[in-house]
Design a protein around this nucleic acid. Structure first.
Lengths: 232, 232
DNA sequence: ACCTGAACACCGTTCAAGT
DNA sequence: ACCTGAACACCGTTCAAGT
């Protein structure tokens, strides 16, 4: 009477479907996704999904939102020192977001076309806004800055996830893939593409960590400059 | 003897397939894509595509690269004034890229998970590197900066394209969609999400143009600061 | 309220066969 | 070298029917 299901399975909710979708994507990679497999994953027939969800599109929307789940919220401590603490706090939040999304890179590839602010993105966004406002940014600036940061991190991870999962599917390591990319660049006609040829090594990384830190530093510098201008 | 095809159709190449894929996506929206329809678009049977292309994945890779086609290269003029000209040149190139991608927003949604540097991205990248090096950036900095700029613009456009094509499919205008988003934010519990509620209007735009200009200005400020540091 | 079985139209891909 | 016809396994979605 307490539960209405004979089996020990957890209740079938939209959230459970979204989670099952992410599990499936991680386990089988992009391309291993279908309504029938999601249904099997939760122990039900494909047709049953349509009771909970309008269609596959909506399921992907839900899964994209579920991607925010499990993101470390960061130390809940003080709002950081008023001077420069906001930089490190924003930097750490960005690094955590990148690492978290990268842990789901197959899902990121499939769901990139569904990235939209959903309910599970609210808490991280609220926290980011709090840090920015606490640092002295005005309301509109804080809103713009938060948008800038999150679009950049997500765009960065998409560009990181595509070759990652592609290499994975070909059974190559990221290093091998980077080496191939470098050779392709270096082999270009130097008269048409002088800079690409010269910078082949720098462009084809991997060194993704240092690219991320470079971008982060430029963004924070640009924001700091805005803060100083409006500030005192 | 000159052409080997009775019909007036243009020769079937991988490029032609990529172009047909983009045309199909623009005409029918995301979801209107299938190997059979691409085949029909070029006047051939579905099985024939597999002579030119390994599978659907590879076709999407090609289409993603074809997305660079038709991008205005910008005035081929002087490498800009040595002082601050590079800023406006980079800004204009970014605006052109955004506008161009936005003109293919359905394709962007579908192909976001396939964004990778392909042959058709080489020329724009070479040009961007030339501008940056001309402005005084060192090789590694220029490579990092170019990567930062292009990942940001592409990430921004993805976030812009998702609600755009979603609203389009529901038959709503972007303004209506933004108004709905604003009301959802404003209706949140103010004790848990004080900043989101306060900034509901700023966060839910649209005002995408001003968000883009905000991000661009911060990025260029951050880069300028780096340039000045290394420069003289 | 929630799930099933069966069906429909359509899909990606293969392969022997044609020219 | 390039394309077709036919087939296979699988897909998203609907709907009447069950409990």
């Amino acid at each position: 009477m307490a539960t209405r299901q004979g089996t020990g399975r957890t209740a079938l909710t939209r959230e459970a479907l979204a989670d099952a979708t992410l599990r499936l994507l991680e386990r089988e990679g992009p391309g291993g996704l279908s309504m029938r497999k999601v249904a099997a994953e939760v122990g039900v027939q494909a047709a049953s999904l349509y009771w909970h969800v309008q269609n596959k599109e909506e399921l992907l929307d839900l899964a994209s939102d579920a991607l925010w789940d499990g993101l470390e919220p960061g130390p809940p401590g003080e709002p950081a020192a008023p001077g420069g603490g906001w930089r490190e706090e924003v930097a750490e939040a960005s690094r955590r977001l990148r690492a978290h999304l990268l842990a789901h890179h197959s899902a990121v590839r499939v769901l990139a076309g569904h990235f939209a602010p959903g309910p599970r993105a609210l808490a991280p966004m609220e926290r980011l806004l709090a840090v920015l406002r606490g640092a002295g940014f005005g309301g509109p600036d804080a809103a713009h800055a938060a948008y800038l940061l999150s679009t950049w991190v997500q765009g960065f991870v998409i560009h990181e996830a595509v070759p990652m999962s592609a290499a994975e599917e070909r059974g190559a390591t990221p290093e091998e893939a980077a080496a191939e990319a470098r050779e392709r660049l270096a082999a270009l006609p130097a008269d048409r593409y002088p800079h690409l040829v010269e910078l082949a090594a720098e462009i084809s990384g991997p060194g993704m960590d240092s690219r991320f830190e470079f971008g982060l530093a430029r963004l924070l510098d640009g924001l700091e400059q805005l803060r100083g201008r409006a500030g005192d």
